[in-house]
């Protein structure tokens, strides 16, 4: 019983970290219809900035996180204006080629600027160490990651479903020409959503850094995981992504405990099964 509970907690923690890192990609892919393979690269930039701010400049953790989010957005906005704007509505293959190219460029630059070694984001005292749950210990930063995931999920859901901006965003996505005709400035809507998605990527990169350490190949190493979460959850759906992360986290963790020799067999088996039953993901919206 203890073991079952223990696995459940690990699964929850892992799933929430996945969620925090992948949700930004769900926004770009689902709401903006851009297959952004450079998502991991933005998460990595966030990680590097936070690491630099906290380790080399000695700033407080919270400040480093903010700096990472806004720093990454500042880097990403020109990229959006110059490159991404050309591929909105372009065929998927064009988007994939462009974003994978951006990814390779960022990997090269990161390798050149920060070197090939691992970088960590030092945690503040409150998040270090572990909490004793009675039957086992769990790292405090994992609990922090779970909370961050919940806050992000609630905040995004509210912003997209309940605010005026969310309405404009959904309108622009479904029919850009009509939305523009009705006076919605779609360019600004897109730019803001892109910035939010990149900020979420950076936030995920920092919060998840304990699990997925920051190094130049981060951008490619975890790309498949991010894409899987989005496709299983259904692009653009916050609850879908949340359920997908918890489900995949549970399957992966249990599989790894019971039969580590099978590797990621169960993870991908589950992905295949879910995609067979729900081709658009658990909460995917039919294309309008």
């Amino acid at each position: 019983m203890q073991t079952v509970l223990s696995i459940a907690i690990d699964a929850l923690a892992y799933g929430m970290v996945l969620f925090v890192i992948s949700i930004g990609l769900s926004v770009t892919m689902g709401l903006m219809r851009v297959v952004n393979l450079a998502h991991g690269a933005f998460a990595m930039i966030g990680g590097y900035i936070a690491s630099y701010a906290a380790r080399d400049l000695g700033l407080a953790y919270g400040f480093a996180v903010l700096l990472a989010i806004f720093g990454t957005i500042i880097i990403a906005v020109p990229i959006e204006r110059l490159l991404y704007r050309r591929i909105y509505g372009a065929p998927e293959l064009t988007q994939v080629l462009m974003t994978i190219g951006i990814t390779f460029c960022i990997i090269g630059i990161a390798n050149y600027v920060f070197g090939p070694t691992l970088k960590t984001v030092p945690l503040p005292g409150e998040l270090q160490g572990s909490v004793d749950l009675g039957f086992r210990a769990i790292a405090t930063h994992r609990i922090f990651a779970i909370l961050c995931g919940l806050v992000v999920a609630a905040g995004l859901w509210y912003a997209i479903e309940k605010t005026a901006f969310g309405v404009k965003l959904r309108a622009s996505v479904d029919n850009a020409a009509m939305a523009a005709a009705l006076g919605v400035r779609t360019e600004i809507v897109y730019a803001v959503s892109f910035a939010v998605a990149v900020g979420l990527a950076a936030f995920g990169g920092v919060v998840g850094a304990e699990l997925l350490p920051v190094e130049p190949y981060y951008a490619l190493r975890y790309m498949v995981t991010f894409l899987v979460v989005v496709s299983v959850g259904g692009a653009g759906s916050i609850p879908g992504a949340l359920v997908a992360c918890l489900l995949l986290g549970a399957i992966d963790t249990t599989g790894r405990y019971l039969m580590p020799e099978f590797g990621e067999f169960f993870f991908y088996l589950a992905v295949i099964a879910i995609i067979c039953v729900f081709p658009r993901g658990l909460a995917g919206r039919a294309k309008g």
Partner: peptide, 20 residues
């Protein structure tokens, strides 16, 4: 003797195995 996949990110389940 446990053999884990090279692409493992989360080692918590392995730690549980070690403990058990």
């Amino acid at each position: 003797a446990i053999r884990m996949p090279l692409a493992t990110n989360d080692f918590s389940p392995i730690m549980q195995r070690i403990k058990d």
